[in-house]
Nucleic acid binder design. Structure first.
Length: 585
DNA sequence: GGCTGTGGTACTCG
DNA sequence: TCACGAGTACCACAGCC
């Protein structure tokens, strides 16, 4: 598949300067890299391929030949006005950054563009080869992809490298009209603009106080063993004689097997439907063995999923944890995170206090205040919610006063807590039964079925706009939704009402966080304040102690500015703090 | 008997 | 029995050599 006529291998500085000059005639330049491995913290870039859309040549820059002589000319190009087209830009940007090269917008990522236009519908892959096949009707030979790029390069390798870059401007030309047609230009720009922040978060990672973590792990494991032994004895209650006859090894239950645990509970005469927490909580007060099981589960989860696994992710070179952020990992537009998933580290102080800044540094942490409720107020245009937020009122307290009939000043702590469950549950059209269960399990709030029904009724009498929004979405029978920023999600089969309501709210919150990250990456470029993580409504920075105040102020104002970019009726508030670990409030 | 992949369950987060 | 969105660990099972 010939997509270019000439491959120009660049091995000296002057040739590179000439090449960059030639490329200035192109508005769009495909960029790809070949690296000696997959880890930007260990491996190195061998080649950078540049393919201008107005040239029939592809420049293949050999970094092993050029060394640091490439930095200035390439930085001139990468900060220039041309659209730099990548496929899976995050991968290349991380390696480029490590080589001292920073790419400024405009950037176009064909993988992200493809994910956006399919809007959450599964359509096969978004690999480069998938896109070339789909949009250009050709097949790419990827056989050189995993070849050894650290030695003398064969013609075949060079051709492969050039071809991957050459195809990118053409892919962009195919994808850009689809973004336009689907109203996704702003969303695409948002995603492209926050690439540098994602690169920051992955390259910087977070520091784990390993000794502290290991001490925690030892303690949790001891607790787990105690809990397991106790539970094991209680589960064998019906067959104590057998145990005394055949020894303690007899009839042990695999505590991690729901099947065996269920059988054991039933053989004790306990009427269990399933072994999930929802089934068990109501039985815990009557059956000590059930309480023991819940306690064991609690500790076992912490040991197995977190305590033992996290240290395996500490990087050999940096000593930090570098997770992978999946920019479009969730179909609402949120990030997902893996290897490890730092977005689900338990909230408890004992865990989060192990995440610490480097010596001499502070963590600067900010989160949005009730962002989803605020977005729901904006989308539904509910007059009462909007007024409350404009006046800086506490919405949970307001809801408590509306459903109890009390004055705002007389609302108790417990009532406010109950109202939290009411707010979060009911904005997405939860039923009374669901509300009751949700309030109990999530907030420890007990309410009768009648109370739940009454709360629900009063809630929608108070927030009429919210109810109207629910009715209009239910009546629309739409197969798609959009966030305020225009992000699209489509369904193949009839979506549930709750999904139709939740997606634009969660997605708009994601738009806001991404906008904040994009602004931050730009504002912090060239400083020693680092973006180290993001958890849905929270952004974490690490800064030298002397700059922590500045960073906190910048973080708060930037996050609020991002909110104001999307929300016009409701103010968005972010709260920042300076801390010596992730745990401090 | 041991390996791999898959689906289900349970639990963590916002 | 739980509003939405995720990832991971574990078990159970099917299919394979």
């Amino acid at each position: 598949m010939a997509t270019y006529s000439k491959l120009v291998r660049i091995v000296d500085r002057q040739a590179l300067i000439d090449a960059v000059s030639d490329l200035s005639s192109s508005k769009v330049v495909g960029v790809d890299t070949e690296t000696t491995g997959l880890d930007p913290l260990v491996d190195r870039i061998r080649l950078i391929q540049l393919a201008g859309d107005r040239l029939d040549r592809v420049f293949v820059v050999d970094l092993f030949e050029l060394g640091d002589a490439c930095i200035d000319p390439l930085n001139k190009f990468f900060t220039g006005p041309q659209v730099k087209v990548f496929h899976n830009a995050k991968f290349d940007l991380k390696f480029l950054r490590r080589a001292g090269l920073r790419v400024s917008p405009p950037v176009f990522d064909t993988m992200i563009a493809s994910q956006l236009v399919t809007a959450g519908l599964q359509v096969g892959g978004h690999g480069l080869n998938d896109l070339v096949r789909q949009y250009l009707g050709k097949n790419l030979d990827k056989s050189s992809q995993m070849s050894d790029w650290s030695r003398e390069l064969s013609d075949e390798q060079l051709e492969y490298a050039a071809r991957d870059a050459a195809v990118l401007p053409r892919l962009r030309a195919a994808l850009a009209p689809l973004l336009v047609r689907n109203g996704l230009v702003d969303t695409a720009k948002l995603e492209f603009d926050c690439l540098n922040a994602v690169v920051d978060m992955e390259l910087n990672g977070m520091r784990l106080d390993v000794e502290r973590w290991q001490a925690l792990t030892r303690q949790l494991k001891a607790e787990m063993q105690r809990a397991a032994a106790e539970l094991q004895t209680m589960l064998r209650g019906a067959s104590v004689d057998e145990v005394s006859l055949f020894g303690p090894e007899y009839q042990t239950v695999n505590l991690d097997s729901t099947q065996q645990v269920l059988d054991a509970l039933r053989s004790l005469g306990i009427p269990v439907q399933g072994t999930s927490r929802a089934h068990l909580t109501s039985l815990a007060s009557d059956y000590p063995v059930v309480a023991a099981l819940l306690e064991y589960r609690d500790i076992a989860k912490k040991v197995q999923a977190f305590a033992e696994s996290l240290p395996t992710f500490v990087h050999q070179v940096t000593g930090r944890i570098h997770p992978t952020y999946h920019q479009l990992g969730a179909s609402t537009g949120r990030f997902s995170c893996s290897d490890p998933n730092l977005q689900q580290i338990p909230r408890g102080v004992e865990f989060r206090s192990c995440f610490v800044p480097d010596p001499g540094c502070k963590m600067v942490i900010a989160d949005y205040s009730q962002i989803e409720l605020r977005v729901a107020a904006e989308i539904s245009k509910d007059a009462r919610m909007i007024a409350a937020y404009r006046q800086g009122q506490d919405l949970h307290r307001l809801t408590a006063s509306l459903v109890t009939g009390k004055d705002i000043g007389e609302v108790t702590k417990d009532e406010r807590q109950a109202a939290k469950a009411v707010n979060f549950g009911l904005i997405y059209a939860m039923g009374a039964a669901g509300l009751r269960a949700y309030a109990r399990d999530t907030y420890g709030v007990e309410m009768t079925m009648d109370q739940a029904e009454t709360f629900r009724h009063r809630f929608f009498s108070a927030y009429k706009g919210l109810g109207e929004w629910h009715r209009s979405v239910a009546a629309s029978r739409q197969m798609w939704t959009r966030t305020i920023g225009g992000r699209l999600r489509s369904w193949r089969n009839d979506p549930k009402l709750t999904g139709l309501l939740n997606t634009p709210v969660q997605g708009t919150a994601a738009d806001i966080v991404k906008k904040a990250l994009a602004l931050l990456a730009e504002a912090l470029d060239g400083t020693d304040v680092r973006i180290i993580g993001s958890v849905h409504d929270e952004v974490l920075l690490e800064a030298p102690a002397s700059k922590a105040e500045y960073a906190a102020e910048l973080l708060k104002t930037t996050m609020e500015k991002a909110g104001a970019h999307y929300l016009k009726l409701v103010p968005i508030v972010a709260e920042a703090r300076i801390a010596d670990s992730w745990a401090e409030k």
